[in-house]
Design a protein around this nucleic acid. Structure first.
Length: 879
DNA sequence: AGCACGCCGACT
DNA sequence: GTCGGCGTGCTC
């Protein structure tokens, strides 16, 4: 039996399976998806079995054997192995990088090298002038030696005491002897073994089992001598128990010490065993059981379509477009119930920030113990335990952030992606996947249904539902299509690209449950404020609004998408601005620490009192950050209680929840923060939402800037007036005429999309093409420029050879353009200059493969001095 | 990623 | 005439 193994070395040259012999003792256990330890180029590495080969297919004689099977149950399944392969091609990464993204950190074992002193040194024993046991004891020195080689006595004793001892530990402790250790291993004085250990073992606890022999136990309770009162108490308690009780719980609950319980165990009256235990982060929390709620007509229609699609066991995608408060979650819950009833499992993806206890409660309340929750705030061990519940089929529903898409279920029927437009579904590190793409691909494998839920769908998803060739519109879609006069607009001159997702069914939920109106939104033109003599960051309107809320004891939410105190520091005498020495970006002033900080690389320096360039004292701070708003609020409204929520105040574990819970208990008047205040909050006393500057996200160098602004404004506006008290929203802006501001004021998604699609079409951006952004970086600018140009030229040559280097304006079905190279929006980051090429393409063009091929000559070989190319495949457009 | 093999400078 | 620099190439 021969296993094909992907070894855990993320490099281009090892990105293929290597073949290993499987010895008969493991043969019955090893499967596709098994995690193994294999010898590889002189060391032992972890790897995954991706398949098996026939004897005839491989070069015989040169095969090594699999060293160790690392888990009794394979952590991955064949479909995930295949999915990782697909990811490696789509996102231009190695197979192992994709595989590593799928397993919990607890299983990312590293091979550890252990050494011990060789007992049988065979032939050497004869060739030396040594005593019988193979040791040469020099004049009382007691040195272990072999020929010219000898180990210092201290080292030898240390090894003897601990053996086998980790090589890394020895090297750390005795760095001066690392060369000697190497020689000792080579010469056979020391022997090495390798073993892969998991980062976290299954947690074991001592558990006390109720008496097996009840009669004997009852008799013992009765006969127990008076001085053994504690034992009697413990035994009587255990007689009442049906289930085993953790020892610690028994001791704490009954005020006993372990000795009394041990004594009972010794008498054979109780049984104490080590059992596996899950670290349940929700232990001890009671979840109120909930029943399905009655659905509105629209909810019911959406649910019906989803349920039918799940039943069909055909892959399908649905876009559930519902405004905040329209009851999407109840539709999800009932669809999941349907899915479970068919013996299939469901995955629910939620943005990390929305994965609050309340959110979890809704699912646990409906499905109880059938739910596993995966999120980044869990410890490695907790996460592993939740993951094992899925793998061991103890749960039917997995709810979690991005990476929960890899939940190792065997029969998935439904994948729900809530707030599908959220950018947190895109992973910024390699593998740079988008959970939505991966979901569609997994659904294809399982014949499952993907439900994308959002009040403001991404243009890509919306295009797949409404504009894609062959897309069907659901019956309730009047409101949605009114913008087109009931007709699909004619965009036939340019193909809409929806990539993998050929079409999606649109399920609109345009009404709030209970018919509560959307809050009124007022736009304030800050230019007019300035002309009217108001130089404050608060318009008169917002100032008055805040004052009213304070007076009435209601709460306000303020959004400013910029943390810190001020965005840049400039000398008014000479024009000097403080920039990061490692990045081409201005430094942000932080008031509390009186420091200048780079928000990209974290560089921090003390804020200058005088200009470092000309010595002038006219150093001034410009631009407004959350810290400055906080200060200004305190000045304007003495005694006001403000909670500031941004990256600077939420780094600590659980701080995010803590701040929100304080606000929920009305211990503050204002919640001030960056975009994290816009998501999913629901507080009854919030009646005012203010956006301090809507423009901050509008002028970013990002083709999605308008879309992001619209989504942010719409979302934050939804935070007001969710309960009895009516809400008010005030948006301050310097560009009140911009369509993303105007349409969000009217909660008018369709008009926004229509305008935005026009722009995207003119400029050839998704969904009218697909994009890959390649970023190249190097410490030396001239080298970077030269390699970037070579890369772009090579890519154009390859595209021309493939016959696809055609303008996107053409009517060709397959087209590809290479733009650049140009300097990146952040031209220097962490001491590396950055250039980028944007690749736009459509149709059946395998742009990822061409990029990979063009990049190859610049990525291989030793890294020193070469331009390292970071390849960023922007996948949101692949969908 | 490691680690070995392999050709050119400053040392016993 | 040898130790050692890191450039290229391989790892089942």
């Amino acid at each position: 039996m021969i296993a094909r193994v992907i070894v855990d070395v993320p490099s281009r040259q090892t990105d293929r399976p290597f073949d290993y012999r499987v010895d008969s003792d493991m043969a019955g256990w090893i499967e596709v998806g098994s995690r193994v330890a294999v010898p590889f180029g002189g060391r032992t590495l972890q790897g995954f079995v991706v398949g098996f080969a026939e004897e005839a297919e491989v070069e015989k004689g040169r095969l090594k054997a699999v060293a160790e099977l690392l888990d009794p149950m394979p952590p991955l399944l064949p479909d995930l192995i295949e999915l990782a392969r697909w990811m490696s091609i789509t996102y231009v990464c190695t197979w192992t990088t994709a595989l590593q993204a799928m397993i919990p950190a607890a299983l990312k074992g590293k091979a550890e090298r252990y050494v011990y002193i060789t007992e049988d040194r065979g032939e050497y024993a004869d060739s030396r002038t040594a005593d019988q046991d193979g040791y040469e004891r020099g004049s009382g020195q007691g040195q272990l030696s072999l020929g010219a080689l000898s180990l210092p006595i201290e080292l030898e004793q240390f090894i003897r005491q601990q053996e086998p001892v980790k090589l890394s530990l020895l090297q750390e402790r005795y760095p001066q002897w690392s060369g000697l250790l190497k020689s000792a291993l080579r010469e056979g004085l020391l022997t090495e073994t390798v073993s892969v250990r998991n980062r976290v073992a299954v947690k074991k606890v001592l558990t006390v089992f109720p008496p097996d022999d009840r009669e004997a136990a009852e008799a013992a309770v009765a006969d127990m001598p008076a001085r053994a009162a504690k034992q009697r108490e413990a035994l009587a308690y255990m007689l009442e128990q049906e289930e085993p009780v953790p020892l610690q719980q028994l001791l704490a609950g009954a005020g006993l010490s372990a000795s009394s319980v041990r004594a009972l165990a010794d008498k054979g009256l109780l049984r104490i065993e080590e059992t596996q235990q899950d670290r349940d982060p929700y232990a001890g929390r009671a979840f109120v059981r909930t029943e399905p709620l009655p659905l509105t007509e629209l909810q019911s229609a959406a649910f019906g379509q989803i349920a039918a699609a799940v039943r069909s066991e055909q892959q399908g995608t649905m876009l559930l477009q519902g405004v905040t408060g329209s009851g999407k979650t109840e539709v999800y819950l009932q669809a999941i119930e349907q899915c479970i009833m068919q013996g299939r499992q469901a995955i629910v993806l939620v943005p990390e920030i929305a994965l609050t206890p309340q959110m979890v409660e809704r699912f646990k309340g409906r499905f109880g113990d059938l739910v596993a929750v995966l999120h980044s705030r869990l410890s490695t061990g907790e996460r592993y335990d939740e993951w094992r519940k899925i793998r061991e089929k103890r749960v039917k529903v997995a709810i979690g952030a991005r990476s929960a898409i890899f939940a190792p279920f065997e029969r998935i029927g439904l994948i729900i992606i809530d707030e599908e437009h959220e950018t947190s579904y895109k992973q910024e590190e390699s593998p740079k996947y988008h959970a939505r793409d991966v979901a569609v691909r997994r659904a294809e494998q399982h014949g499952a249904v993907v439900v994308l839920g959002s009040a403001t769908p991404s243009l890509e998803s919306y295009a797949a539902a409404v504009l894609a060739p062959g897309s069907r519109h659901s019956s309730g879609g009047e409101g949605v299509h009114a913008a087109y006069g009931g007709q699909r607009p004619d965009y036939s001159t340019q193909a809409v690209e929806t990539g993998m997702l050929q079409r999606a069914v649109l399920l609109p939920l345009p009404e709030r449950v209970g018919g509560r109106p959307m809050p009124g939104v007022e736009i304030v033109d800050m230019r007019a404020e300035l002309q009217g003599g108001n130089r404050s960051m608060f318009s008169r309107k917002l100032h008055q609004g805040l004052a009213d809320r304070l007076e009435r004891g209601e709460q306000s939410v303020l959004l400013l998408n910029r943390r810190g105190y001020s965005t840049f520091v400039m000398c008014r005498s000479c024009g000097y601005t403080a920039g990061c020495p490692h990045c081409e970006i201005s430094l942000t002033f932080h008031q509390k620490s009186r420091a200048l900080r780079c928000h990209y690389c974290g560089h921090t320096e003390r804020s200058p009192e005088t200009c470092p360039s000309c010595g002038s004292e006219h150093i001034r701070f410009f631009g407004t950050g959350t810290q400055r708003v906080e200060e200004e609020l305190a000045k304007l409204f003495p005694g006001i209680r403000v909670i500031r929520m941004d990256v600077d105040t939420t780094t600590e574990k659980g701080s995010h929840e803590k701040l929100l819970s304080r606000f929920g208990k009305r211990q503050a008047d204002v919640l001030l923060g960056t975009q994290m205040v816009a998501k999913g909050l629901d507080f009854p006393y919030v009646t005012l939402v203010g956006v301090i500057a809507a423009d901050t996200s509008l002028h970013l160098p990002d083709f999605r800037a308008a879309e992001k602004t619209f989504q942010l404004l719409t979302q934050v506006a939804g935070r007001a007036g969710r309960h009895e008290l009516p809400g008010e929203v005030i948006i301050q802006t310097y560009t009140p005429e911009h369509y993303s501001v105007l349409t969000s004021q009217r909660h008018d998604y369709e008009s926004f999309v229509r305008e935005e699609l026009k722009q995207r079409r003119i400029l050839s951006y998704p969904p009218y093409c697909r994009l890959i952004l390649v970023t190249l970086s190097h410490e030396q600018l001239p080298q970077l420029v030269s390699v970037s140009e070579k890369f772009a030229e090579e890519l154009r040559v390859l595209a021309a050879e493939a016959g696809v280097l055609v303008s996107l304006d053409s009517r060709e079905a397959d087209a590809m353009e290479v733009l650049g190279p140009v300097a990146s929006p952040i031209p220097r980051l962490k001491d590396r200059y950055r250039f980028q090429c944007m690749i736009k393409y459509r149709g059946a063009v395998d742009a990822a493969a061409l990029v990979k091929q063009a990049a190859r000559p610049h990525m291989e070989g030793s890294a020193a001095g070469k331009v390292l190319i970071g390849i960023d495949v922007d996948p949101q457009v692949i969908l």
